[in-house]
Amino acid sequence: MKNSFLAALAVLAVAACTPAKPAAESTQSAPDPATQKWAALAKYPDWTGVWEVDWRNSRGMPAKPAMKLTTEYQAKADAYRAAQKQGENLQSDAANCVPPGLPGIMTQPYPIQFLYQPDKIVMIIESYMQFRQVWTDGRTHEVDPDLTFYGDSIGFWDGDTLVVDTIGLNPQNRVAAGVVGHSGKLRVVERIRRVDHDWLEIETTLTDPEVFAEPYTSTTSYRRLDDNIREYICLENNRDSADEQGRPGIKLE
């Protein structure tokens, strides 16, 4: 014990006597790998700001094409719509603050922010305060992933376009209003690009052999807001509700 204490003192004494390295030498040495990883992010497009769906369609984007569903899912959609005439299916579980998951979460009223990290891009989504992780470290999809609201996302850069490929999505997620559920084989491919200073576009392709007769592709335009993400706790003061048949309710007191 005593010897080791003395040895430690000796080490400190030597350290104190060693002259500091000249500044020039430290700047010439290669940055450590962690620093290099962060520095490499500088080559990616700058998506600073928060991005909000262009609800006013001020760029005159074309109307969304019609979805071509399989016979099975078209019948489901027809039944859903028929029940609306009976007062059902007028409200979704979103009224009970259940987040919509992918793809619906990408076309909510509040903005999205993109954060770059060396191994992933994180989307901070103001609506329902959700986040998505897109792995950009070259990994492949999980084998037999759990089916979750936002699934398993991997991404890569194709020039200035981020391509995000997502599988493993919860069959509860809706591919569109009025189309309930999917097979669990839903795949969402998003091509995200900043088209100019104020606009970002996301082209989204949905495939699911049991739901779609052919892949469905649509493009959504997002406006840049010089703003930050705000808090959104849906259960803070939620007075709206949907019952099991989708009938709406509201609490006044």
């Binding site: 609800w55 369609n57 969304k64 094409p65 009025g178 469905y216």
Partner: peptide
């Protein structure tokens, strides 16, 4: 048209329209 889009939950440039029978 914008109001109709809102009533169906399908604003232009946003979520895709539900297929109609």
């Amino acid at each position: 048209a914008a109001r109709e889009a809102a009533a169906t939950g399908n604003a232009p440039g946003a979520s895709p329209p539900a297929p109609r029978p």
